Simulated assay, not measured.
Amino acid sequence: MKIQLWSIGKPHEPYIKMGTEDFTKRLNKYFSVDWLIIPPPKNAGVMSATELKKQESKIIIEKLEKEDFLVLLDERGKQLSSEDLAAFVQQRANESTKRLVFLIGGAFGTDETIMKRANFTWSLSGLVFPHMLVRLILSEQLYRACTILKNEKYHHQ
């Protein structure tokens, strides 16, 4: 199974880049993992939030493959414990999911078309985090999930 971590926005800031690269490298011991940073549409600054979300959704839909399992990160989604996330990842592997895509939407969230396309909507927290920080948390939590699956020391209960 391949894991894709997608985020709409600017490239990683230096303070995030080192951490996401470290956890992504660690994750690659378990699954093939890649980041895709999707730049905002041109003229994003003059678009309404609704129009911007529609334009971003078009870009995302073009990049998704029919059989992709899409996990949308959204504060209104279901919260999971680290153990629940590990079980979720294992279930996707057991189902022979080819590509598991985790999507961090744009500054205003995602359009309804993406919400409908998502196979699962996941909330990291009831709190709202900056997108850059979500990238770091996502990569760390996926790494933690993999160490739980392998019964390694990283995760302490």
Score class of each variant (00 low, 15 high):
residue 1 M to A: 05
residue 2 K to W: 14
residue 3 I to L: 13
residue 4 Q to W: 10
residue 5 L to T: 00
residue 5 L to Q: 00
residue 6 W to T: 00
residue 6 W to R: 00
residue 6 W to C: 01
residue 7 S to R: 01
residue 8 I to T: 12
residue 8 I to L: 15
residue 9 G to F: 11
residue 9 G to K: 04
residue 9 G to L: 09
residue 10 K to M: 13
residue 11 P to D: 11
residue 12 H to Q: 06
residue 14 P to T: 06
residue 14 P to W: 08
residue 15 Y to L: 10
residue 19 G to P: 04
residue 20 T to V: 14
residue 21 E to M: 02
residue 21 E to R: 00
residue 21 E to N: 07
residue 24 T to P: 03
residue 24 T to K: 01
residue 25 K to D: 12
residue 26 R to D: 09
residue 27 L to F: 02
residue 27 L to S: 05
residue 29 K to Y: 05
residue 30 Y to K: 01
residue 30 Y to H: 03
residue 32 S to C: 03
residue 34 D to N: 08
residue 34 D to W: 01
residue 35 W to E: 06
residue 35 W to M: 01
residue 36 L to D: 04
residue 36 L to G: 02
residue 36 L to F: 03
residue 36 L to W: 02
residue 38 I to G: 06
residue 40 P to E: 15
residue 41 P to F: 06
residue 41 P to E: 05
residue 42 K to Q: 12
residue 42 K to P: 11
residue 42 K to S: 08
residue 44 A to F: 11
residue 44 A to S: 07
residue 46 V to H: 14
residue 49 A to K: 02
residue 49 A to L: 06
residue 50 T to G: 05
residue 51 E to G: 02
residue 52 L to F: 05
residue 53 K to Q: 11
residue 55 Q to T: 06
residue 57 S to R: 00
residue 58 K to Y: 14
residue 59 I to D: 13
residue 60 I to N: 07
residue 60 I to S: 10
residue 61 I to K: 02
residue 63 K to F: 13
residue 63 K to A: 15
residue 64 L to R: 02
residue 66 K to N: 09
residue 68 D to R: 00
residue 68 D to P: 04
residue 69 F to G: 07
residue 69 F to Q: 05
residue 69 F to N: 04
residue 69 F to D: 10
residue 70 L to R: 02
residue 71 V to S: 12
residue 71 V to T: 15
residue 72 L to E: 09
residue 74 D to I: 03
residue 75 E to S: 12
residue 76 R to A: 11
residue 78 K to R: 13
residue 78 K to C: 12
residue 79 Q to N: 15
residue 80 L to R: 04
residue 80 L to D: 07
residue 80 L to I: 03
residue 80 L to C: 09
residue 80 L to W: 07
residue 81 S to T: 14
residue 82 S to P: 12
residue 83 E to P: 01
residue 83 E to F: 04
residue 84 D to P: 06
residue 86 A to D: 04
residue 86 A to L: 06
residue 89 V to T: 04
residue 91 Q to D: 15
residue 93 A to P: 05
residue 97 T to K: 00
residue 98 K to T: 14
residue 99 R to C: 15
residue 100 L to F: 11
residue 101 V to Q: 08
residue 101 V to S: 11
residue 102 F to W: 12
residue 102 F to P: 09
residue 104 I to Q: 02
residue 106 G to T: 04
residue 112 E to S: 13
residue 112 E to R: 03
residue 112 E to F: 06
residue 116 K to N: 14
residue 116 K to G: 10
residue 116 K to L: 15
residue 117 R to D: 11
residue 118 A to H: 06
residue 118 A to E: 09
residue 122 W to A: 09
residue 124 L to I: 15
residue 124 L to C: 14
residue 124 L to G: 10
residue 129 F to R: 03
residue 130 P to H: 12
residue 132 M to G: 11
residue 135 R to Y: 10
residue 135 R to I: 09
residue 135 R to H: 09
residue 135 R to N: 08
residue 141 Q to F: 12
residue 142 L to M: 08
residue 142 L to A: 11
residue 144 R to Y: 07
residue 148 I to K: 01
residue 149 L to E: 04
residue 149 L to Q: 11
residue 150 K to G: 13
residue 150 K to Q: 14
residue 150 K to T: 14
residue 151 N to K: 04
residue 155 H to R: 00
residue 155 H to K: 00
residue 155 H to S: 07
residue 157 Q to H: 13
residue 157 Q to V: 07
